[in-house]
């Protein structure tokens, strides 16, 4: 398969572009001699580029896992109440135990995200089986309801600013060295998903098939929910909500190379990073030197891709 090397080459090119573009006009080629250029590179440009790549890759992998778990192509971690639940968890721990250390908050956010996603799974299990399109609708409405609760609590407790930071369109302009490292946790979770890729692929074939092959569907489901929840929680606390990456990237990759997750997860990860980095670069360039949040760009680009996926001719031969 030549797809992976080609995609990685594109990603490398975009990364170089990302390192050279920014409000401060410095040449990265000078970095070895010019301490100011080195500072900009190491403290701002490099962390930002890494943050975008990690986020894009982790979200896309979380999306592919989620789609295997619920056996539906039209969902992503941002349309199932996961992000909103993580926000609710963060909010709860911030209000109840304001002094708790960062890792406690992260654990709380991840657990809440997992509960919220489990709630979504419980809801869609009660939908009529054949109604493929009802699943994303239920997810979007559930996200809306949980988001409304979070917004309201945030507003009552004067924490609305934080809630908006987590749930409004995500952006990377605030990323500096020391302020993005949680994303590595998300990347590790995504790596874990690759490790268990076969299990998710088998669960995607149905509970009966999974049981017949000696897997416990419940255990695989919990592992998958944990991956999705951790990725989402880390991303929203670090950069905010990034829409559509986890939704459209797995679709595009599945269309090209199918759902053998062991082979496709690396491609999904690289494609996710490419999509997000491209959108981030567009956001940085279109109104230079101002920035448009990558979440806004993706809201437009992702929605258009999604509508195309919805109305394209099905792949049936």
């Amino acid at each position: 398969m030549r797809l992976l090397p080609a995609a990685m080459l594109v990603l490398a090119g975009l990364s170089v572009a990302s390192l050279t573009i920014g409000a401060a006009s410095v040449s990265i080629l000078e970095a070895t001699r010019d301490p100011w250029a080195a500072l900009v590179l190491m403290e701002s440009r490099l962390p930002r580029t890494l943050a975008v790549i990690l986020t894009g890759a982790a979200l896309a992998v979380a999306g592919v896992v989620l789609q295997a778990l619920v056996r539906n192509r039209f969902v992503g971690p941002e349309t199932t109440g996961t992000a909103e639940s993580a926000t609710l968890g963060l909010l709860a721990v911030t209000i109840l135990f304001p002094a708790s250390p960062l890792w406690v908050k992260m654990v709380a956010a991840s657990l809440a995200a997992m509960l919220g996603t489990a709630l979504f799974v419980a809801v869609i299990r009660r939908l009529p089986m054949r109604e493929v399109m009802l699943v994303p609708i239920a997810g979007l409405v559930l996200s809306g309801v949980i988001g409304a609760i979070a917004t309201f609590i945030g507003w009552q407790t004067d924490l609305l600013q934080y809630v908006n930071g987590w749930l409004m369109s995500g952006e990377f302009s605030g990323v500096l060295a020391g302020r993005y490292e949680l994303l590595w946790v998300a990347a590790v979770a995504a790596g874990l998903a690759w490790f268990a890729a076969d299990r998710f692929a088998i669960l995607g074939l149905g509970d009966s098939v999974a049981t017949g092959l000696g897997l416990s569907p419940g255990a695989v489901m919990r592992l998958g929910l944990a991956v999705v929840a951790v990725v989402t929680a880390m991303v929203i606390t670090t950069v905010g909500l990034i829409p559509f990456v986890g939704l459209v990237v797995p679709n595009i990759v599945a269309r090209i190379m199918g759902d053998n997750l062991r082979a496709s997860i690396p491609v999904v990860a690289v494609f996710g990073a490419v999509l997000l980095l491209t959108c981030d670069l567009i956001g940085r360039l279109i109104r230079f030197p101002y920035e448009i949040p990558v979440g806004t760009i993706l809201g437009v680009v992702g929605a258009v891709i999604f509508l195309w996926l919805l109305y394209r001719r099905p792949a049936h031969g």
Binding site: P136, L140, S169, T296, V300, A303
Partner: peptide, 16 residues
């Protein structure tokens, strides 16, 4: 679903 996504598209375009 199309309508919901159109809604997201319009809102994002609006912000954009």
């Amino acid at each position: 679903l199309t309508g919901v996504i159109l809604g997201i598209l319009f809102r994002s375009l609006n912000t954009f």
